[in-house]
C-alpha cells in the first residue's frame, strides 16, 4: 500500500475509534465527512469494523485453559490460613509504660514496649504476622487485665495461649520454650538456657534469640541474666524494666559498680539435675558456674514448683534473711 496522504494519517485514530464505537460524536462526524470523499479510508473503516467484529468474538470465545476452579480452591485455603494470622492489636498503658499487645485467633502473639507517644505501625504488624493487622475491638481487655494483675504482683502466671508463628527457626523456638519453663521468682543464666537446649556454646545466640523475644513478660526472658549475675540487657536498652519485673517476683537486684546485678549469696540455689533447693552456702555451690544453677527468690517460690529443702543445709531451718528496703 502506498503511504497514506497526511489527511488520512491524521484521521486514522478517529477512524479506528469510530470503527469500534469509541469515537466522540465530533470525531465520528469528522470521520464521516472524510470517508465520504475518500474511498481508501472508507475501505479502512470497513476493515477496522471487521477487526472489531473479530475482537468482539475474541471476548466471547472460551479459553481452553482457563478453568479457575483449582486456583480458587487454593486461594481459599491460603486465605483461611491468613485469617488465622489476622493480628488484632491495641496499645495499653501500663506501669512499665505504653505497651502494645497483639493476638491472633490462636493466641497472644505480640507484646512490645512502646516509647511514650510512639504510634503503632499497623503495616509493620501486618508484615510481621504475615496477614493483616487491625485495631482490637475489646477482646484484648482480659489479657490486659491479667497483665496488670501480674505487674501488680497479684498473679504469678499468665496462662495465655500463645501464637509463636512469628518465630522463625527452631533455635529461637527452643530458646523461648526453655525460657518459658523458668518458674516465677527464679532466674537462670543465658549459659544455663544454652545448656538446657543442648547448645552449651551458643550463649550469645541465646541472648540474641531472647533479644528478639516477641512475647516479653509472657515468655519471661527477664528471668535470664548474665553469668556474672549482671542483668545485662532487656528489650534493647530497657534493663530498668527487667529490674522491675524481677522485683515484682521478689528477685532483688543491686546496682553494682557498673551495672545492675543480682547477688547469688542472697538467693536459694537449685543445682542442675537436683530436686532439692539449697542455701547458697551449701557445699561448694557458690563456686559452681551460673549455667548449672537456677536461683530462687524465696523458699515459697522454690517449693511452689515442687522442690524440697536440701536435707544437708536445711534452708527450711536456716532461711536466708530477707532483704529489706529498695536496693
Amino acid at each position: 500500500m502506498s503511504p497514506a496522504p497526511p489527511a488520512c494519517r491524521e484521521i486514522e485514530a478517529d477512524l479506528v475509534a469510530t470503527a469500534s464505537g469509541e469515537a466522540s460524536p465530533a470525531a465520528a462526524r469528522r470521520v464521516e465527512g472524510h470517508v465520504s470523499a475518500c474511498d481508501r479510508c472508507q475501505r479502512e473503516l470497513d476493515r477496522y469494523r471487521e477487526v472489531d467484529g473479530i475482537v468482539q468474538s475474541l471476548r466471547r470465545a472460551p479459553l481452553r485453559t482457563s478453568d479457575p476452579t483449582l486456583a480458587r480452591a487454593e486461594l481459599e485455603s491460603k486465605l483461611a490460613d491468613l485469617r488465622t494470622r489476622l493480628l488484632a492489636f491495641r496499645r495499653f498503658t501500663s506501669p512499665l509504660g505504653p505497651i502494645l499487645i497483639g493476638r491472633t485467633e490462636l493466641g497472644v502473639s505480640l507484646v512490645e514496649y512502646l516509647e511514650p507517644g510512639e504510634a503503632v505501625d499497623a503495616a509493620r504488624l501486618a508484615r510481621l504476622s504475615g496477614g493483616r493487622a487491625v485495631e482490637d475491638t475489646g477482646e484484648l481487655e482480659s489479657v490486659y487485665g491479667e497483665l496488670l494483675e501480674y505487674l501488680d504482683g497479684r498473679r504469678a502466671r499468665l496462662d495465655w495461649p500463645l501464637d509463636l508463628r512469628t518465630v522463625r527457626g527452631s533455635f529461637q523456638h527452643r530458646v523461648l520454650e526453655a525460657t518459658a519453663r523458668l518458674p516465677y521468682g527464679a532466674v537462670a543464666s543465658y549459659a544455663g538456657i544454652a545448656r538446657d537446649i543442648g547448645a552449651p556454646r551458643a550463649v550469645r545466640a541465646v541472648a540474641q534469640a531472647l533479644r528478639h523475644n516477641p512475647l516479653p513478660i509472657a515468655i519471661p526472658c527477664h528471668r535470664v541474666i548474665g553469668s556474672s549475675g549482671a542483668l545485662t540487657g532487656y528489650a534493647g536498652d530497657k534493663v530498668g524494666l527487667k529490674q522491675r519485673l524481677l522485683a515484682v517476683e521478689g528477685v532483688r537486684t543491686a546496682s553494682g559498680r557498673r551495672h545492675l546485678a543480682i547477688d547469688r549469696r542472697r538467693l536459694y540455689h537449685l543445682f542442675r539435675g537436683e530436686h532439692a533447693y539449697c542455701l547458697p552456702s551449701c557445699g561448694s555451690l557458690l563456686t559452681k558456674p551460673m549455667a548449672d544453677v537456677t536461683l530462687f527468690a524465696s523458699r515459697d517460690r522454690a517449693e511452689a514448683v515442687g522442690l524440697e529443702p536440701c536435707g544437708e543445709c536445711r534452708p527450711d531451718l536456716h532461711p536466708l534473711v530477707p532483704m529489706t528496703g529498695a536496693d
Binding site: P68, L70, E74, L75
Partner: peptide
C-alpha cells in the same frame, strides 16, 4: 495465571 491470580487476591485481601 493460577499463581498470579492467587497473589492478586492475597494482596487484595491484605
Amino acid at each position: 495465571a493460577d499463581d498470579l491470580s492467587q497473589e492478586t487476591f492475597l494482596r487484595a485481601y491484605r
